[in-house]
Amino acid sequence: MKTLVWVEHDNSAMADATLAAVTAAGKLGEVHLLVAGSGCRAVAEQAAQIAGVGKVHLADNAAYANALAENVAPLVVDLMSHHDAFVAPATSHGKNITPRVAALLDVMQISDILSVEGEKTFTRPTYAGNAIATVESTDAKLVITVRGTAFDKAETTGGSATIEDVSGAGDAGLSSFVGAEIAKNERPELTSAKIIVSGGRALKDSETFQQVIMPLADKLGAGVGASRAAVDAGYVPNDYQVGQTGKIVAPEVYIAIGISGAIQHLAGMKDSKTIIAINKDEDAPIFQVADIGLVGDLFKIVPELTEKL
């Protein structure tokens, strides 16, 4: 089987999410990559070094700069005439573009796979991860998104793929990019952080969240996450949200502070290796999944913890 993997990038560097998708695609067969963007040759050169990659298709066109689905999907569909599977990381670009590709190919997409069980058989989470379905595609081609935390990252060196320029139709004339507000963040990215410190509604307000959570995260070199309740209450921006509809994370250590552990939050972090919970309510559901729990007042515990680490 010949697979085509979507390379996630910002036109200057490849994002880590790509590497899990490459691993998943490698289980299906030969791996080719697609780098679609503008002025993104450096990304293609980087991607060509990923171990196990056969070829990199580079589509460099101003219309692909911001990965608008209307422009990019027809390009992918063209390339799918000589590939058997399209595989994308389940990033916001991947989730936006992939179903558009699937429908144009008249294929039913398999979203967010957790494992490859056979040539056309996969597992995927449903009901916020409360039910794991094993599914088999009957379509001629496969269209898949990959949950990043479920697959090892492919090695970023060792490969020597050829780069082949491809052209597509460019601008479909349906949409245009206006702008982005991407938070500049010195901390590790949530989906690749080794340690995550996450805060919930108990943090009271934005200022308190900053004062309590950030020093601990700084001390541990951790990424910072939040529950939906904390994001909805405006303590932190939306991209901090961990959960069914936010980011899915699986760090070595996840420290949940003042988070009760709603189903939809657990769906986003229960695959973490070690979960530590600090909460004043000893009956909070978070303690049912926590490896280490500490019951008490977070406003006393967290500063003391930060101090003593």
């Binding site: 294929v107 039913m108 398999i110 058989t121 989470p125 449903t126 991860g129 409360n130 039910a131 794991i132 379905a133 094993t134 599914v135 088999e136 595609s137 009957t138 379509d139 229960k270 979960i275 000893e282 303690f287 049912q288 999944v289 926590a290 490896d291 280490i292 729990g293 500490l294 019951v295």
Partner: peptide, 19 residues
């Protein structure tokens, strides 16, 4: 287009210890 072969509970995480 997709056949569901099986639906299972996710692996259950056991509650650990309290310090």
């Amino acid at each position: 287009r997709i056949k569901t072969l099986k639906v299972a509970e996710p692996p259950v995480r056991q509650a650990g210890i309290k310090v």
